[in-house]
Amino acid sequence: MSAQTPSTLAQRSGSANPQQPKWTSTGGSAPSTGAVVRATLLIAGAILVVTPVLWAAMSSFKTQAELAQTPPTLWPNHPTADNYTSGLQAFDFVHFLTNSIIVTVSATVLTLIINSMAAYALSKYNFRGRTVLFLITLSTIMIPLQVILLPVYQVIASFGMVNSLWGLIIPPAATPTGVFLLRQYMLSLPDEMIEAARIDGAGEFKIFLRIILPLSRPALAVVAIFSVIWRWNDFLWPLIVAQDESVQTLPVAIARFASQQAIPFNQILAVSVVTILPIIVIFLFLQRHIIAGLAQGSIK
């Protein structure tokens, strides 16, 4: 239900091989001035981007008095892990992490299943209402959940889904972006295979499961990445729906923790650092696949 659109939207049917970006002049010769300037800029920029996060991580080891000190210290003078021990004591990290994982994983699986089914029908069947359904899907890419927050909240309230993980998982699952991406990808799959399978007597669902899904892996990967990032970071929707601590996800729990008067800021920083770590670790492991997948899957 997020409005991010993949680059396919306006992508012309390009024919180039995406894995070979070779317009640079860095052949085998000595680096030109341009290349040096570029590398310098890139590295300086990267440092600018990363530094605040590292600094916050350093600060999370400072004492309350040191954090309020002027002028501030760069490195903690007396590094202490107290913020972590007492922060995590007051903040049930494992519980909120579990909720975040449950919501992210199940919403993503649900999204992949229903989006790919719908995309398959919209790309490979000719049926009455197809165009209308597709256009409605397309036009709602632009409706962010935020603008229909109140009526959606009322709908889930009438279904009794407020204050349950279902209320976090189901409503945002039918992402128009995912349907759109997958449909575009599936259009490029040859019809002949489907036809051949039908002649062999394969059922419609079996064809989808055994032929279409495996072939759509790159596009499915992209939708999965989008979905994980969206659901993991979702804030406004869970903020309203998850009213009990028992169903809160990490972002909501942190925001609540951060605005609690009795919690000092150094503990808030410590808890924030702890929540960033898992996703960074996962990213570093899968980085190659994620960035390549985004570039590749959205270009097909």
């Binding site: 909240y153 889930i156 309230a157 407020v162 204050n163 309203i240 009213q243």
Partner: peptide, 11 residues
């Protein structure tokens, strides 16, 4: 905010 959201959802 939290109480209002709960009340308006019958929770």
């Amino acid at each position: 905010t939290s109480l209002q959201a709960r009340l308006s959802a019958g929770n």
